[in-house]
Amino acid sequence: MKMTIVTDSNGNVLGAIQGHALSETRDGVEATVSFAPGHSTHMIEVDDDLATVDDVDEFQARLRKHLQQHQQQHQQQQP
């Protein structure tokens, strides 16, 4: 499943949005999600069952795990 994870300038996870689209238009109305300066968005793939996790601590721990894996892969790809 695609998720966009939002972090602050210190790398703390602030939240997540299912999917990679931060804007949508319906019936002529457009809505866009934006974040304050210093915040970062990370578009990653996560386990499909993450959408069903009800425990906040577990959800955030799994988000952090996926984010760390994503960042490690991204660093390895840098020249």
Rank of each mutant, 00 (worst) to 15 (best):
A61R: 09
G11V: 08
M1E: 10
Q73P: 11
I5Q: 01
D55L: 10
V33A: 10
V29E: 05
R62I: 11
A16T: 06
S9T: 03
L67R: 01
N12V: 08
A36Q: 15
H20R: 04
F59E: 08
T32W: 00
G15L: 07
H66W: 03
H39S: 06
G38W: 00
A36Y: 15
H66F: 09
S9I: 03
P37S: 09
T41M: 12
H70G: 03
V33Y: 12
D49A: 03
S23H: 06
V56T: 15
D48Q: 09
T52E: 15
V53E: 14
Q73S: 14
D57L: 14
M3I: 13
E58H: 03
S40L: 15
Q78S: 11
F35N: 05
D47F: 12
Q78T: 11
D54F: 04
F35P: 04
I5W: 00
V56P: 15
P79S: 08
K2C: 04
M3S: 10
Q69K: 13
A61C: 07
P79E: 02
V46M: 11
D54R: 07
Q69H: 13
D49L: 02
P37D: 13
R62F: 12
G11K: 09
T4F: 09
L63G: 02
H74M: 11
G11R: 08
H74P: 04
V29G: 00
E30T: 13
V29N: 05
A16V: 07
